[in-house]
Design a protein around this nucleic acid. Structure first.
Lengths: 163, 163
DNA sequence: CTAGCTGCAAAGGATTTGCACGACG
DNA sequence: CGTCGTGCAAATCCTTTGCAGCTAG
């Protein structure tokens, strides 16, 4: 009953939502929990862990369980709405809205993950190419390890203070 | 042929001696278990899981435990002899000898991981660059998702069979 | 000697699964 | 109505930790 009320609210707000339409197109059952999860991921547009997502969605559906969050994420990945990163944030998987053309920097100092758009020459192998060394390449994810601008600044300040 | 094998052995032995020297230099205690682990990783020169390593080393030291394998891997990573990949093979971490200049393809069909040397133009961001978008980049790992030559061939054959 | 390593068992943490109930279509 | 999603709890799997005894340097 309560679920139904929530659903009506959400449905009003998201009727026009393109993502929801795509879910329906793909034959995935649209439930308020799923909409809330996808909505949050798209809105934040950042690298969220399952727990971060769970925490947020709990504010709307206090009874939602991690199992549902994980199974929903799985579904959203399958239908290409969400992407799971290969790198982990403090040991946890990270999820973000599916989008092409950016890569990730993992700051080795603070652990933050940043989106990085790389300017590549057209013949650069980092750009999706159909064939590399006899392999059919469908996707390229580049992970850069280093320091984010903040930590880089801190490091410089520390060096300056020492000398 | 025999000569070739002989020289390869010598080469391996030399590499190990150097590796052992590096361990000592870094103040890491050299134990037979550790040598066996490093030796195996260097010899195979491929992406090994902790369990694969454990299985091999058990043949030399039947009592060795996974805890020792993991702690040794940790040490070897710390001192830069071994590298842990960001991607997992069937959910398990992968380890390989540290080396620069190659990246990895994960076959989405068979799950195999292949080394891929990418030919990049000199201004390609995939090549380690000190500064990208205000970030200090120390390392770049590119992960390609697609089909290995074998699975690509199989796919083509299946398509041909259908039509 | 003695700091640090090994091996066992047990803990830890992220993710998955089985199952009963309830909701979507 | 039947299929499929949800939520709970328990299970699973990889990895880490605590600790007692042992070893390399």
């Amino acid at each position: 009953m309560i679920n139904k009320m929530y659903y009506e609210q959400i449905e009003e707000v998201t009727m026009m939502n393109e993502a929801v339409r795509r879910l329906k197109e793909k034959g995935v059952k649209v439930t308020p929990q799923r909409v809330a999860i996808l909505e949050y991921i798209v809105k934040v547009n950042d690298h969220l862990t399952a727990e971060e997502i769970h925490n947020y969605v709990k504010s709307k559906f206090p009874s939602i369980s991690m199992a549902t969050v994980y199974s929903t994420l799985q579904k959203l990945i399958e239908i290409g709405e969400v992407e799971e990163l290969s790198i982990k944030k403090r040991g946890e998987a990270c999820f973000e809205p599916k989008s092409e053309g950016h890569h990730h920097l993992l700051c080795t100092s603070c652990g933050k993950i940043l989106n990085i758009a790389l300017d590549c020459p057209p013949d650069c192998p980092i750009i999706k190419q159909s064939l590399i060394k006899g392999c059919k390449v469908n996707e390229v994810q580049a992970y850069l390890y280093g320091l984010c601008p903040e930590c880089l600044r801190k490091e410089k300040e520390e060096k300056a203070a020492k000398s």
